[in-house]
Design a protein around this nucleic acid. Structure first.
Lengths: 192, 192, 192, 192
DNA sequence: AATGAATGAGGGTTCATTCAT
DNA sequence: GATGAATGAACCCTCATTCAT
């Protein structure tokens, strides 16, 4: 069986099991079983549980960034662009909730994987910063935009958690986040 | 040694070790050693690793909420109140970063502890919502304020992570968050 | 509190807990709790779990032998005497089933306690041998009677187990054992 | 090493250690060491200590029943058949005394294993009942024969214990039990 | 006389990881 | 290329037992 296919098969299984049971709760046994292969194969391809987990993070990060990148559309007006990006972001997180919570949130606070997650998040911050810059009514430094992007993403994650818990509807969340982005907490509502 | 003191001693050690290694990475052996007591004592006082972890969460939650509650000051003007709350929040998260990341962030995504963390977070959301309401220039429903508070806290957590990484200075972050809260991403800067 | 009463209180509790959970399943904690005293008291009075268990065996053995001894009645005819003895035996075992099974049957096959149990059983064998001798139609040596008594008691224990399981009614068992004792397995029934 | 052989090797070791120390006294460590394998192997093959113990019971039960079944010989006269069965029984119990005492006697009084032991014993009772029926001088119901068989086995076990203790010689015991079976305690000796 | 507080030692169980084939 | 068989190490938890008061 060709290497590339095997790799995907194994990653699919690993992500599934990691997402379901968390890093420690997932045993190499379970992953091998889920992938319908033998344990030594996992080690042959990935060397260790840590590296396998890292590979999972990398693949999901890529999917996430692809989704975000795909959301950019030069024809949209700034505000629409922001809204669309937020929508894509929230939908992605919601659709991949379990994987997201394990591979991003948990991993981000685990010494061994924090760097990996952060370096990936860096890129989404970059993207968000671009959108913010284009939406902005005045010039700011790159660093400022990046900081703001971080805030936006943090807020997005918090809202995404709410969506995942069913506490909030996605479109409502999009509206809220867009509104807040535009006017802040204290500002008036558009329709008022 | 009296019971009350032992309990604190044990919680101190547990929080330290949990924060350093995460829930699974922390062994009861290590916690007992850190507390300079024997393992059975941990079990005598807390019954199980799960319950010990839960006790840690509870204690830190309380500390956090106390800090937040202490930040409320009726003499402050709304905007100052918001700014002060943000400052207290960021400082707390920064000062307790490791405990925070393990006892809140990791625990929140672990079935056994999610409920506990969420019920505690509920209370900080409540507090933040109050502050937001008093800062607001127009009336909104309670639910709306709570949602906004969640967003604010999510944003705060993201920024706190940056502070913890040394990427941002606390006061700068306070200014940014306050500004964004007030005017949103797109608004003009106060001084412009 | 006077020593004698304490001792009984502790033995009562110990027998109860041992009978309910077996030797290993019974913890000194549980016994102390059942006796409403502190663990060090148990150790003060009995020194160790083994010795406490031995004391339980001794007390129950005494009760058992007392019951058996009380069953002897010179006014009864030999066959009636035998039947009465069997009845008393079976009833005792039945009434004290849990304690019996733990303190005799289990203990008998445990290195540390086998000797104690056997030396107590010795005495019941002696008693049974006396009854058998008086029932016998011909002279035999003491050793022979003792051997036969052992057989009788073994048979009795097997039947007692059946009674305990509710598989057999006590009086039916008495009749059976008496009949068998009198005539053997192959012999005709009295009424035939 | 092939699976089948390992299984036997492990059961051999387990039976040895269980017999020597009892169920609780036997540690999985000790069993693994005795079998010259590692502990995880035991768990891979048997899943838990309980299941390993059950497997021991099953194997020894089978051996025991095989021995008993092999003792049946249609060419023997009823009384000889009974005598032969008793001899085989006593020899088996004697030859396997430690295993017998732990795997049958102790297990029989332990909630988790009682059912297993009893279901196996059921079968020996069945066998003994058959022999008794063919030796009997008059017709009885199946239930009666089974009850008598239980008594016979109980008596046999008691005698086997004596043999094991060296208090009695096997052939003497065979003669006694056969005689008692034939004539009861009170009857005359054959040679008188 | 009595106990709350404390522990050393060990048990069952699981897991990531590696040979030998 | 692929795996069945095997293990060292560690973890959570419990228990009999003992001080210090």
């Amino acid at each position: 069986m060709p290497r590339a296919i095997r790799e995907q098969q194994m990653l699919d299984a690993a992500i599934e099991v990691f997402a379901a049971h968390g890093y420690h709760g997932a045993s190499m046994n379970a992953i091998a079983a889920e992938a319908s292969i033998s344990k030594p194969m996992l080690y042959l391809y990935y060397g260790s549980k840590d590296e396998l987990f890292a590979a999972c993070i990398r693949r999901e990060s890529t999917r996430f960034l692809d989704a975000l990148t795909g959301a950019a559309n030069p024809h949209l007006k700034p505000k629409e662009q922001l809204e669309h990006g937020i929508r894509v972001f929230l939908n992605f997180v919601h659709d991949n909730r379990t994987a997201w919570s394990v591979l991003y949130r948990q991993a981000m606070y685990q010494k061994e994987f924090a760097e990996l997650v952060l370096s990936s998040r860096e890129r989404s911050v970059e993207l968000a910063a671009l959108i913010l810059r284009s939406s902005s009514r005045e010039e700011r430094s790159n660093d400022e935009y990046r900081l703001m992007a971080t805030v936006l993403i943090g807020a997005g994650e918090a809202v995404a958690d709410l969506i995942a818990n069913g506490a909030v509807d996605t479109e409502a969340a999009v509206a809220l986040l867009t509104g807040l982005s535009w006017r802040g907490f204290a500002g008036k509502r558009p329709d008022s």
